[in-house]
Design a binder for these strands. Structure first.
Length: 127
DNA sequence: ATTCTCACA
DNA sequence: TGTGAGGA
């Protein structure tokens, strides 16, 4: 059944379809790409092609945004997921992970900076 | 008709 | 983020 994943990973949808499916503007979709949240393929004519997985990711991003999480926070969340995916056999975020991320965000909007890395441990406020 | 990049009265 | 220009 890995065939289904293959299909979901196939990039074939033009940005116009993605816009209708996600209710996001082209501007937003392209911006999230700049933020490396989604990386659509390109046609020979430089047109973006998205996969169903990209759609899901975009929809997920919408949820996080509506929950008050900003780009930095979302990046942190995916960085965490990749971190877990690399170590473990991958699993969704645990409750404590979410809390840690949210707390991390709280520090973010509070004017604290962190290293550009993905470490969620030993963060020292910047004076 | 669609999408792309770039730039900001 | 929106929006318009200028090109493909």
């Amino acid at each position: 059944m890995a065939e289904k994943e293959l299909q979901r990973s196939k990039s074939v949808l033009p940005i116009g379809t993605v816009m209708r499916l996600t209710d996001l503007t082209a501007r937003q979709i392209r911006y999230y790409e700049e933020q490396k949240l989604v990386i659509p393929k390109r046609t020979e004519g430089n047109r973006r092609l998205y996969s169903l997985n990209d759609i899901d990711k975009l929809l997920e991003i919408k949820d996080y945004l509506s929950d008050g999480i900003n780009m930095a926070g979302i990046k942190t969340i995916y960085a965490q997921q990749e971190k877990r995916a690399a170590e473990r056999k991958n699993e969704p975020l645990t409750d404590s992970d979410v809390r840690r991320i949210l707390h991390d965000e709280f520090l973010n909007i509070s004017g604290f900076e962190r290293n550009s890395g993905t470490s969620l441990h030993s963060q020292h406020p910047l004076q």
